[in-house]
Design a protein around this nucleic acid. Structure first.
Length: 713
DNA sequence: GATAGGGTTGTTTTT
DNA sequence: CAACCCTATC
């Protein structure tokens, strides 16, 4: 141990020497970082560029605090994904050799839920509330919309999804409906619509209360409200002595409120972030939070960590060259630590299929050089960009892992299964009932609503189900289709037998039996679907209560998905190429990164090409993508895309065009295939000319692309 | 009036 | 591939 410093030797003499031996703070961290972890007292802001060892700084900070004798239950660590929280806590455990037991670690939403479950009554909720995800929120909003304004589709009015988004922006950014409309939906900016929206939102909120449902917004709102309760402030917030917040640039107004309320008591707060990586404005995030942070706290200490350990200087140069096009940003200089290797490559391909074939060729090449597939990532702006890859990778027997797309739990059969569990846990849950009613033949929307009303007339809908004669009578009064009612009564008869059980696995097994006939009848690939269900049952065995299982299902979905996929694939294959959205790739790194579909209308996508602020956000997404790469970076721009049996021509993304061409090497892969594919080169004449200079090459062609895409000739 | 089934369309990003 | 609209049928 020749790297032990004087400082450490001094600490070694203290009582906690047995921990220190395991942590080599000064060997693992640089001066900037050490300066941070040695000064965790009072408010602190850390601006941490991409790849600067941000995660290390935070984990070492937590370790250092515990090492100084702070109890884990006095520390709160807020992250943006549960995955990040788990990873950091795992690293703390590795550093200290013991679990940081009792630490308040997790996402804003999962921490909020911990508080609200503990103080449900104070939050104004009934005990067994259910958390609903976004698509459930849309559905519930739709119910309110149809209920209040049956002919809303004929009016100039936002649809259910838009209404929910308006409400979310209103809550998360502390704006009025009018301000939100002006900002995001100017064409709906009318007095009449605002009044209707107000009515709608109060109906939606009332419906949630009746149904005992809590949406993602409520979690934040209620947590924020709870912090105003003296009981909470004294019993919990005060006991949290240190708060660390990761990815602070992605917090929105209400999240910042929450953090400040807790921090104001003990004033020990460290927020870490990078304005250049703020990519969640669609969720109301505002990276100015990072700047305004100090305004409400005293004597804030500012730190920067500037050394980039991840990427080659070439990759950093390119990333810096891109982000400098953003007007609204704070200057920071990333200092490369690594040696040069090669320039990033910009690749032009003909279409998405060739994009796939180019990448597969490269992947096989890397593989033959001994590079692990898990060191390679394919990153994209939108989920649907990955579909072609999944097919092509499969065809070429390259193992891969998809970290995007509709969540496993968004699939119909999974939602159906879970709906049964949900009404056992919370029998007022209208959305879950509606899903189950859909299983009953000849029972449509209208009858389903009537039945739900009859059931919820009683205090205890589940007991009502058991009290058959009574229910039967009421159903007859409502003049419901006889066939459907008989089927339903039979269905719920078997359901009733296990509703009082509380172990998720036991109940799920019973539900599986109950819904199997429905699965067999309604899905062609019923075998796969049943396997999915079995995977969930398997997973549920780790949970003791319905509550814990349902909460995790809603708040911790992404990890769930990957667990499930691994178990259903039945391969313990770890060596797989990663396919991921850029959003999900944030915070991660790979040796080789392919950023694909870098063409206008794909990245930036059509809907985000007008407003300069939107473009800056898109450019930050691009920046995040570039800075994921350690050694090799490929930027790939397809010239066309097939959609609806039509070929649409695309221009290279402005994010590629605007780069200084001396910083990358260009590969034109499209020429190789022009003739082979019998492509009509009508508006691509300059393609065949290899002598055009690089810059021109990107800019000259495809002036008709935008027009074609929009269908105007 | 209510439901089932067929055809069409269009798809951001996540807790 | 799922949400939506339209139409045929009960």
């Amino acid at each position: 141990m020749d790297h032990i410093t004087k400082q450490q030797e001094k600490v070694n003499l203290t009582k906690k020497a047995h921990f220190i031996n395991k942590i080599s703070f000064s060997a693992d961290l640089n001066e900037e970082q050490l300066n941070i972890i040695n000064n965790i007292k009072g408010p602190m802001i850390v601006i941490a560029g991409a790849g600067s060892g941000k995660t290390s700084t935070i984990t070492y900070s937590v370790a250092k605090l515990m090492d100084n004798g702070i109890n884990p239950s006095e520390i709160m660590l807020v992250t943006f994904t549960n995955k990040a929280a788990n990873e950091m806590l795992h690293r703390v455990k590795k550093l200290l050799g013991k679990e940081p037991k009792g630490i308040w670690g997790g996402t804003f939403h999962s921490l909020a839920n911990r508080f609200i479950r503990k103080y449900t009554h104070l939050a104004g909720l009934k005990p067994r509330y259910t958390i609903i995800d976004q698509s459930d929120s849309y559905s519930l909003m739709k119910l309110s919309l149809e209920n209040l304004f049956p002919n809303y589709k004929l009016m100039n009015f936002p649809n259910a999804k838009q209404c929910f988004k308006i409400l979310s922006y209103k809550i998360n950014t502390n704006k009025s409906i009018k301000q939100v409309l002006k900002w995001k939906y100017p064409h709906f900016l009318k007095e009449d619509i605002i009044i209707k929206l107000e009515k709608l939102f109060s109906n939606y909120n009332g419906r949630k209360l009746k149904n005992n449902l809590v949406d993602f917004n409520d979690l934040l709102v209620l947590w924020n409200k709870l912090l105003d309760e003296k009981e909470i402030a004294y019993n919990i917030a005060e006991k949290i002595k240190y708060i660390l917040v990761d990815e602070y640039q992605d917090t929105n107004h209400i999240q910042a409120e929450i953090i400040l309320k807790i921090a104001q008591i003990n004033q020990n707060i460290m927020v870490v972030g990078d304005d250049a990586q703020s990519i969640y404005s669609f969720r109301g995030a505002n990276f100015k939070n990072l700047l305004n942070f100090g305004k409400r706290l005293n004597q804030i200490e500012k730190h920067q960590i500037n050394y980039n350990y991840r990427s080659t200087p070439e990759i950093l140069d390119l990333a810096n060259n891109s982000i400098k096009n953003n007007q609204i940003q704070f200057q920071k200089i990333m200092k490369p630590v690594r040696e040069s290797i090669v320039k990033p490559k910009c690749v032009i391909v003909l279409n998405e299929r060739d994009q796939a074939s180019f990448i597969i060729k490269e992947i096989l090449n890397y593989k033959s050089k001994g590079i692990n597939l898990s060191e390679i990532a394919i990153l994209y702006r939108s989920n649907f960009h990955s579909i072609i890859f999944q097919k092509e990778l499969q065809a070429n027997a390259i193992p891969f892992e998809v970290r995007s797309g509709i969540s496993f739990f968004e699939q119909a059969h999974i939602k159906d299964l879970i709906a049964h569990l949900r009404i056992i846990f919370n029998p007022y849950d209208e959305l879950a009932w509606n899903r189950i009613f859909k299983i009953i033949p000849n029972l449509g929307k209208v009858s389903a609503q009537k039945i739900f009303k009859i059931l919820t007339l009683s205090r205890d809908p589940l007991r009502e189900l058991k009290n058959f004669s009574n229910l039967d009578l009421n159903l007859k009064k409502a003049k419901l289709p006889k066939q459907a009612v008989n089927y339903m009564l039979k269905y719920f008869k078997s359901f009733e037998e296990f509703t009082s059980h509380s172990h998720p696995t036991y109940v799920l097994q019973k539900i599986r039996k109950l819904i199997t006939p429905y699965i067999l009848k309604n899905f062609e690939n019923f075998n796969d679907r049943l396997k999915d269900i079995d995977a969930i049952i398997q997973l549920s065995s780790e949970y003791k209560t319905l509550s814990a299982f349902l909460d995790d299902l809603n708040l911790n979905m992404s990890e769930f998905s990957s667990n499930i996929k691994e178990s259903t694939n039945n391969k313990k294959q770890n060596n797989r190429v990663v396919l991921s959205t850029i959003h999900k790739a944030k915070g991660l790194e790979w040796k080789v990164v392919f950023v694909i579909s870098l063409s206008e209308h794909l990245f930036p996508p059509s809907h985000n090409r007008e407003d300069e602020l939107d473009i800056e956000e898109e450019r930050r997404i691009f920046y995040v993508a570039l800075t994921r790469a350690k050694d090799d970076l490929f930027l790939i721009s397809p010239k066309s895309r097939n959609s609806y049996k039509k070929t649409v021509f695309l221009r290279p993304s402005r994010f590629v065009n605007e780069l200084d061409s001396s910083l990358y090497e260009i590969i034109d892969y499209s020429n190789n295939l022009m003739e082979e594919l019998n492509f009509k080169p009508s508006n691509m004449t300059s393609n065949n000319n290899n002598s055009v200079n690089q810059k021109q090459h990107f800019n000259s062609e495809f002036t008709t692309a935008d027009k074609l895409l929009k269908g105007k000739d």
